[in-house]
């Protein structure tokens, strides 16, 4: 039991690029949508035949409908040098059926596709810079400032600034 708890809190993620011969990772930019609802389903669906975003008179705003609801969306680029990835559990080929459970618990993931932008949708309301979703990108620059290694010059200028304050 103790062991299981351990693995739940400290999961190691091994991310690898799909290694099939001659295969290139599919670019799904423009096809990634964040909906303002929870769809209790995981798997393929005929999205392009049913989900038809259309531009609106307002620049940058698209309109679509899902299950009778009106959605308003906008496409956000993923800031350089980041990328979006669609990942899936790594599939191990030619294994016995008894190994299936082990496969489920594996923390090996592989990249199935990548994207450089995504469209997020609000129910009824126009997307804005105040939306939590677009604001979440702030973390990228904050994280960079927090985690960037400190150089000697940084230390000098910081201590100078401190002295001035005294």
């Amino acid at each position: 039991m103790e062991m299981e708890k351990e693995t739940e809190t400290e999961t190691e993620i091994n991310l690898s690029v799909k290694e099939e011969e001659g295969s290139k990772i599919e670019d799904v930019s423009g096809k990634v949508h964040q909906l303002p609802c929870s769809v209790k389903y995981n798997g393929p669906s005929s999205v392009s035949q049913y989900f038809k975003p259309k531009p609106t008179p307002t620049t940058g705003i698209q309109e679509s409908f899902f299950r009778g609801r009106n959605l308003l969306g906008t496409t956000l680029p993923i800031p350089h040098p980041y990328s979006g990835f669609v990942i899936g559990k790594k599939s191990f080929v030619k294994r016995k059926a008894s190994d299936m459970s082990e496969e489920k618990n594996s923390s090996c993931w592989e990249v199935k596709a990548k994207f450089q932008n995504l469209t997020y949708w609000n129910h009824d309301t126009l997307p804005s810079h105040d939306d939590a979703f677009s604001r979440s990108f702030h973390w990228l620059s904050v994280a960079e400032a927090l985690h960037k290694p400190v150089t000697a010059e940084d230390l000098v200028s910081a201590s100078m600034a401190l002295k001035k304050m005294d």
């Binding site: 303002p36 609802c37 929870s38 769809v39 209790k40 389903y41 299950r67 609801r69 129910h123 009824d124």
Partner: peptide
């Protein structure tokens, strides 16, 4: 159908 949950 697949269940869909909305904030509204």
């Amino acid at each position: 159908l697949v269940e869909v949950l909305w904030e509204s």
